[in-house]
Amino acid sequence: MTIYGLWIINKAGGLVYQRNFAEGLAQLSSNEYLVLAGTLHGIHAITSRISPIGPSSGAQVIEGENFKLTILLTATGTKLVLLTSLPDASAQLILQKTYEAYADAVMKNPFHTPEMPIRSEGFDTRITDLIGTGQTS
């Protein structure tokens, strides 16, 4: 499995954290990532509306031919998105752990402004410990 990247999208659809880990996907500018995060935020809202059988969550896993996006929607509306290769069973688990790290290193940080881009060395270190800098195996 390969982990390509991690995004954190705030409840308004803004990208507050974005980090690449492995090569394999296109290299985009930070502006393009912002646009994609906004698009994903919108799509996520629509996917819960078009359910054929009653109330539904938004999209949880989006698959392409060679990679997938796994989305964790937290209770506060923040979305954690993990971009991985297809045969990856641990994406959900990694997202849960990322959320823990987010709660510890970002939300408990008195210098962090909520809904603003995350600039925290502590969080970066936690993520590096969790995912690595370029994990391939």
């Binding site: 919108g42 799509i43 819960s48 359910s51 969550s57 999209a59 949880q60 698959e63 392409g64 971009l83």
Partner: peptide, 24 residues
């Protein structure tokens, strides 16, 4: 939108295949 997003992320050859929610 998803098709364009997937193409943007992984190159023009990539195809969007499916997505999953809790009910469908």
């Amino acid at each position: 939108s998803l098709r364009n997003m997937v193409k943007k992320l992984a190159g023009r050859e990539e195809q969007f295949v499916n997505y999953k929610t809790s009910t469908y």
